[in-house]
Write a protein that binds this DNA or RNA. Structure first.
Lengths: 316, 316
DNA sequence: ATGAAAGCGCTAACAG
DNA sequence: CTGTTAGCGCTTTCAT
């Protein structure tokens, strides 16, 4: 009797234990997929990330998993290889096997996201899409703090290593960094788009030098670390000759030499918030809460005073 | 008409395009879960890993995803937080929603694994279970190479930082390292079990020094890197005073200072092989192929000749 | 080549 | 409290 599993309190304890014993004996397990077909609830949540190898994601994934487990849900993680086409395919594939999808740093167009949201409840992370619930980390504020930090150290020419095409975060950073640089009367040059990996950073080392920038804000820590590597192999020292700021505060940024100055993103809180939003509003698709989480500048050893003792150089 | 989707060649092209047009108009998408209920094929594969934050896994995950995509399958990744109880729960949860599960570095007992394999096809990675298909990387050979490398450099006392309880890999490493040390007439002391994280390594730094070992083989790169950090903060230099070898060759091991000498694991090949085995043998549960992949010692900068003369001192 | 009907494993609603 | 029935969305088989 199926009630033994679906509504244990409505069944005679004696009957229940008899059924249970029999089920045990037969090795019976309820088929969750069949159950979902009729209840409309799979108790699964899909989580689509751009690149599982990017250390930025694991803390977010873990927090989401933990939040989900507390509510008796499971998270299925899938990776898109930064490919918008794969993103779309994965949403379709997950659609009827999960109760909702967490779309993390999607690269596809807003209109496509909106269209997909009619197929399955969506919560978007690291991007704002009008009409859809979203969780964003205020990376614009972080970028502003970073640029202010650099200009306070006397840097007058800053390079910005942009992220991949289609990244909402990258646009936000650019917007905020540009504004902050203008406010401080400093020059800001945007380089990119780039792959959001170490390699993307390494590849821009020469370019940064040729530019004559004395400080760099990178789209993420991986690129910042790659850039440090690249500069190192060109014989350029960080932070004595070039200051570098990353974004994300991945655990790795505490292990490199020099330790990376970076903008800390509350990834754990974002993962939890996204799960909460998805589960809270259930089927009420009109809810469009947009949560913004604060970021924070973490000053370590990869930033220092601008070189060439200029009169307006400020000591920290 | 459902045939339009399931058997397009058996349907009149004209009818087909009419159905397709209508489906498009209605926004219809076949429900994969319902389809699976009857075909018995979900075209999904579950992948259970111990810790998604461990950089060892992403290359394996990506390779598995890529191999799966080529065969029109999707990989659902889940994380157990190194908790055997969660491992079991996840297998049950995935059971009827996937066509098979890849169990990566499982911590649970062999008998439980065997029992679960009756519920859903299983391929075990990084562990050998009699009667089940498995893919292992020959970490024993790698450990032997590492110990031989160290003894050849003159080290007479080697510490082995063991992995977590329940790890098959950890037992293999221990077995092989012990044998290799004995063959070279060197002393080998096992420390652990430890958490397979940076923190697990950092925490053993003092212990290693007190032991008087001049070389350390760590269960994985994360622990090796943590140990380097720990020794560094105790004022001990690597490799001048202590040589360190990791295992895995995660990308991070090329970024630390000093660059890590380590045993390279063919994680990509392992991921692909596991998917192939699962899909190849389909329902034939009696197939018990066991694939063993070769490992390789990568010598970088964290190992050097054994120090001569006085033993180092622990600063209070 | 297409329509109709049965049924995958389960839960919901309704009787008893 | 427990047995029965219908039907979730699909594919398969059997008619037509």
């Amino acid at each position: 009797m199926s009630r033994t599993f679906s509504a244990p309190h409505l069944v005679n304890p004696e009957t229940r234990s008899r059924v249970l014993a029999c089920a045990e004996h037969l090795g019976y397990r309820p088929n969750r997929a069949a159950r979902a077909l009729i209840t409309g609830r799979t108790h699964n949540i899909g989580l689509i990330v751009a690149d599982i190898a990017n250390p930025f994601f694991p803390p977010l994934i873990k927090a989401a998993e933990s939040a989900a487990r507390h509510r008796d849900y499971h998270i299925f993680v899938t990776d898109t290889n930064e490919d918008p086409a794969v993103e779309e395919e994965l949403v379709h594939a997950l659609a009827k096997q999960v109760d909702g999808v967490l779309l993390c740093s999607p690269r596809m167009s807003n209109s496509l996201i909106e269209q997909l949201s009619r197929e399955v409840p969506l919560v978007v992370i690291n991007r704002q899409v009008t009409g859809l619930p979203s969780v964003v980390m205020d990376v614009g504020q972080g970028a502003r703090l970073a640029v202010e930090h650099l200009t306070a150290l006397g840097h007058r020419h800053i390079a910005l290593l942009g992220g991949p095409r289609g990244s909402w975060t990258s646009r936000e950073i650019r917007r905020a960094a540009t504004a902050a640089a203008r406010a401080a009367d400093a020059e800001l040059t945007v380089l990119g788009p780039n792959q959001p990996t170490e390699h993307g950073g390494t590849g821009q080392a020469e370019h940064v030098l040729r530019l004559g920038a004395t400080a760099v804000l990178a789209y993420n820590d991986l690129m910042a670390i790659g850039l440090i590597e690249g500069l190192d192999s060109l014989g350029v020292r960080v932070p004595e000759e070039v200051s570098i700021v990353g974004i994300d505060d991945i655990s790795l940024s505490r292990l490199t030499r020099p330790k990376l100055t970076t903008v800390a993103n509350p990834t754990g809180a974002a993962g939890r918030a996204a799960v909460d939003m998805l589960l809270q509003h259930g089927d009420d698709r009109r809810t469009t809460a947009q949560v913004t989480l604060q970021t924070e500048l973490v000053i370590r050893d990869s930033t220092g005073p601008a070189p060439t003792g200029k009169p307006h150089t400020v000591k920290e």
